[in-house]
Design a protein around this nucleic acid. Structure first.
Length: 644
RNA sequence: GGGCCCGUAGCUCAGCCAGGACUAGAGCACCGGCCUUCGGAGCCGGAGGUCCCGGGUUCAAAUCCCGGCGGGCCCGCCA
């Protein structure tokens, strides 16, 4: 079983019940923790476990009696009983409260329960990995928010976490961009200053213009199916920004007889490390990455490593991996190209093993197409490089697990990569490479298309949110200086954006709605930030807590009691959310906690409390809430604020 | 044509994986109260639902299975 260190008295109580249940009823502690849940009604107790699923109805009473005697006197602050087939656990709030008061006096605060010493893993989280050809947009924001939150959760759980960004600089997209800059013969810095734009935005403009013009050429030749008029109008729209530069790109691209051949040439020259492609790509993509960093920094997202796809090739890692693949018995020729028969890997390696087919996630009855490893001209494809990179992620960090935060549209290639790892005999890596998939953010009625310059950039969203937050802050705190208001507004904006992207389950399609992100009311990040600020200020007004005076009998009141139980559940909820990679569970827990707290403090004053024992006990409750919010918001990357 | 994801109040979502305490919960918007505050980004109350549809399994289905429908994504010597 996984450990839950430092979970506090409530979690320890539950764990003891779980281990007694394991000893006396054969229900594993793990299963117990999975199924135990808050009781829906107070009269049932605090937590319930559906024992009827595991034990015959007529023997339930006996089993629970046996569990109770197993517990013996080891925990005196909880009791068990049976209602409607559920094993119900009720905490004695006065005894539990007493334990908590002592612990808190000695510096304990609820945080994510940590795994045991022997269970610490090294986990690589690769996320965002946007193509360095245009600025980050809302779609990437969901990826970054999820990825960064996962990394924070796993780290708080006690694991070693390595955050990686994979720079895709070898694909056609970068080649398109390189063509644009080759034509211009200008640096991205110069273009940016001419356009008076942030550098990644300026590069994005060159990219969209070059790409769309290429497509126009191809469409006219009938090589691709795109509407010529709509391409032309996109070009006209983009051109307005800087007619002179635009015309250079447009005219020169139009002159190309075979743009596709030109792109291939650029790609293979870059793959070979030749100039000027090498310098152009590295400098242009490098500048875009600088723009990414600036944007991500605002959101509190950082990386440990920026891995360039080209380095995977130039370091020889790709060729050595390819050599190993060539030695595999699953290698085939597919229409003259070197390919891997991943369908056969699935049939021969995965299917016979029930365990593998669960983790590898094979779609049922689906013909998995062969995976082309190299074009007939010998150049490689991005997924071939991704096989090598996958191995690199494991090896360079000695990782036990790799979490790839990648949109759901890449499910098939991700599956093929896992199968390729199996073909190489790398079972451990295949099983421990998790595709954390999420559905993409869409604009109402259409998708965001970087190659047409159609997207809502993340910088714009952050700016809008900051402006909106600033209005709110100034409205609510007229006395605040503008500088301080700006700082606060920035944090509120980040809280709003990150929370809104992490709160819905990752598989829910999100249609982007500015108003929704800019809403700061209940069920939002700012609502939680506000609740934290209130809790903090109550404690400030209250002054230092005198723990020796705190009287746990004060926790008999039903809202206070609810708050006590709820805050003490945090270590378990957060640990489970981390283990299951479900940030949304943590988000909804925090919202519920904030609701309970807001309901309570408005009708049960702390600093006006006359009874000193109750006053200090209540102050401790506020501290528990504040500490939980601080931990939870920290994990979600929502900044905490003491004033707002 | 095949595969995968999603479908719960007008809107955004939780609950589904591990079926029972569900008389299906929140928020937004709407209606009515709290401007006598430990800061109203809050609190109290109201109204609002064929849990997409149809079968099946079960003592019991929003939850599991089958078949549809609707939306999205994928099935390329693109990334």
């Amino acid at each position: 079983m996984v450990g839950y260190l430092g979970g506090g008295p409530l979690v320890e109580g539950l764990l003891k019940v779980g281990s007694c249940l394991e000893a006396r009823a054969g229900v594993s502690v793990e299963l117990f923790l999975k199924l135990v849940e808050r009781a829906p009604r107070e009269e049932y107790g605090d937590f319930g476990f559906p024992l009827l699923r595991f034990v015959r109805a007529d023997s339930i009473e006996g089993v629970v009696g046996s569990v109770a005697s197993c517990l013996g006197g080891s925990v005196d602050y909880l009791s068990l009983d049976v209602v409607k087939g559920f094993l119900n656990i009720r905490f004695n709030e006065v005894k539990l409260g007493g334990v908590v008061i002592d612990l808190t006096a000695n510096g304990w605060a609820p945080g994510i329960a940590r795994v045991g010493d022997g269970e610490v893993k090294t986990i690589v989280v690769e996320h965002t990995s946007a193509n360095p050809v245009h600025p980050l947009h809302m779609g990437h924001a969901r990826n970054s928010s999820l990825g960064d939150t996962l990394a924070r959760m796993l780290k708080a759980r006690g694991h070693r976490v390595v955050r990686r960004f994979y720079v895709n600089d070898m694909g056609r997209q970068v080649a398109v961009l390189t063509l644009g800059f080759k034509i211009l013969g200008l640096t991205p810095q110069y273009v940016a200053s001419r356009l008076k734009a942030k550098i990644d935005h300026a590069v994005g403009w060159v990219y969209a213009l070059t790409h769309t013009t290429i497509d126009l050429v191809l469409a006219r030749k009938g090589a691709i199916e795109e509407n010529v008029e709509s391409l032309a109008s996109t070009i006209a729209r983009l051109r307005e920004k800087d007619v002179e530069l635009a015309d250079m790109i447009i005219e020169n691209v139009m002159k190309l007889e075979d743009p596709e051949a030109e792109l291939s040439r650029i790609m293979s020259r870059y793959e070979a490390g030749l100039e000027p492609e090498r310098s152009i790509v590295r400098s242009v993509a490098g500048k875009v990455i600088e723009g990414f960093k600036e944007t991500l920094e605002k959101l509190g997202v950082e990386f440990d490593y920026w891995d360039w796809e080209s380095d995977v090739v130039w370091s020889g890692l790709l060729s050595s991996t390819l050599e190993k693949l060539k030695g595999s018995r699953y290698i085939v020729k597919h229409k003259d190209a070197l390919a891997l028969d991943v369908a056969r890997v699935a049939k021969e390696v995965v299917e016979p093993s029930g365990e593998l087919s669960q983790t590898i996630r094979l779609p049922r009855g689906f013909e998995i197409p062969p995976m082309i490893l190299a074009r007939s001209d010998g150049t490689t494809l991005y997924w071939t490089r991704d096989i090598a990179y996958s191995l690199y992620k494991f090896e360079s960090s000695k990782a036990d697990m790799v979490v790839n935060v990648i949109a759901g549209e890449q499910r098939l290639p991700q599956l093929q990569i896992r199968l390729a790892l199996l073909a190489l005999g790398r079972v451990r890596e295949a099983v421990n490479m998790i595709h954390y998939d999420y559905e993409m953010v869409r604009l109402p009625g259409r998708v965001m298309r970087g190659r047409r310059g159609e997207y809502v950039s993340l910088d714009e969203i952050v700016e809008d949110a900051e402006a909106r937050a600033l209005q709110e802050v100034l409205k609510r705190n007229p006395g605040l200086g503008v500088e301080e208001a700006r700082i606060i507004a920035g944090k509120v904006a980040v809280g709003a954006i990150r929370f809104s992207l992490v709160q819905p389950g990752a598989l829910k399609p999100i249609v982007f709605d500015v108003e929704k992100v800019l809403n700061f009311e209940e069920n939002t990040g700012p609502y939680l930030q506000y609740t934290y600020a209130r809790a903090h200020n109550i404690l400030e007004k209250h002054g230092p807590i005198d723990f020796s005076l705190a009287d746990p009998r004060a926790y008999g009141d039903s809202l206070r009691r609810a708050l006590l139980i709820q805050t003490l559940t945090y270590p378990l909820v957060a640990a489970k959310a981390a283990d299951e990679l479900r940030p949304e569970d943590l988000a909804s827990y925090l919202l519920k906690l904030a609701d309970t707290f807001n309901r309570w403090y408005q009708r049960d004053s702390v600093i006006h409390e006359q009874d000193m024992g109750a006053r200090e006990a209540k102050a401790i409750l506020v501290k528990l809430v504040r500490d939980v919010l601080s931990s939870g918001l920290g994990v979600l990357g929502v900044p905490v604020l003491e004033r707002m």
